[in-house]
Simulated assay, not measured.
Amino acid sequence: MQVDPKTNPVIRRTRVKICGLTREEDVDAAVAAGADALGFVLWPGSKRAIDLARLAELSARVPAFVTRVGLVVDQDPKLIEAACEHLDLLQFHGNEAPEACGRFSRPYIKALRMRDRIDLQASASAYGQARALLLDAYKPGVPGGTGETFDWSRIPASLAKPVILAGGLHAMNVQQAVRAVHPFAVDVSGGVESTPGIKAADKIDDFLRQVLTTYPSKFQ
């Protein structure tokens, strides 16, 4: 359920996930900037894809209290279970059924692309075990990482799952997004990159700064 941090003290701030990490220096930069979660893409169709061996190397750099998230898209359950050794949370970005998402040894979030006429309340009910719903822009044939925003007003305020907002976010629009949606978290990949898969430390710092100062009078 979305909670307005301006009026409810339960949610003290919007969390931040930096996704699509492929290099040690980018993991270090995201942690140093204060990211709450780091995303590793295991889907080979992505420009930011890494394999299990690389996942093991990068995840070993992540300190305690920073969540390691593995992004998968309709992939082999054996690969997913093997990846769980190096992850704290799974992120399903394909057409996985609820029972398929819930079969693994890690909790999960479910990504939903904002197609026309999507019923978010029904999806929240169907994916009842999901820790959150990640809402991303819809682009045919692209399961995520579109770099495009969607109409944030389509998200119902009463949605019975925490919302992770994704899709086209960057330092110039993330404060507007947080004020409009009041999401539990925001997810960024391309918006903090110099090229696909290569993060820019200054962009990561700027993005985190914008999120963390959205409500400065109450939360600094």
Rank of each mutant, 00 (worst) to 15 (best):
A126E: 10
D187R: 02
A171E: 08
P156L: 01
S194Q: 05
A56H: 05
F40C: 03
Q129D: 13
W43C: 06
A53Q: 14
K47S: 12
D187S: 03
K203Y: 01
I109S: 02
N173L: 08
G34V: 07
I118P: 06
L169F: 08
T213P: 13
S194K: 12
D151L: 15
A201E: 13
Q220G: 15
L21F: 09
A166F: 05
L120P: 13
A32V: 04
V69W: 00
D202S: 13
E148P: 03
R13Y: 15
Q210R: 13
A132P: 00
V72R: 09
V62F: 08
H93M: 04
Q129C: 02
E99W: 08
A64Y: 14
K17V: 06
G94S: 08
L58V: 08
S217Y: 10
A82W: 12
P44C: 10
A49M: 02
G141I: 08
G141R: 06
A126Y: 07
H170N: 11
V181L: 06
P143E: 13
V192P: 05
Q176L: 09
E96F: 13
R179G: 12
P44I: 00
R209Q: 14
T149Y: 11
D187M: 00
R48P: 02
F207H: 01
R179I: 01
Y108T: 00
V62C: 09
D26Q: 00
T213D: 11
T67I: 15
G190K: 02
Q129V: 03
L169R: 07
S46Q: 00
E193A: 03
L120Q: 05
L90K: 03
M114N: 10
S194R: 09
F150A: 14
L159F: 05
R113P: 06
A132D: 00
A33Q: 10
G191E: 04
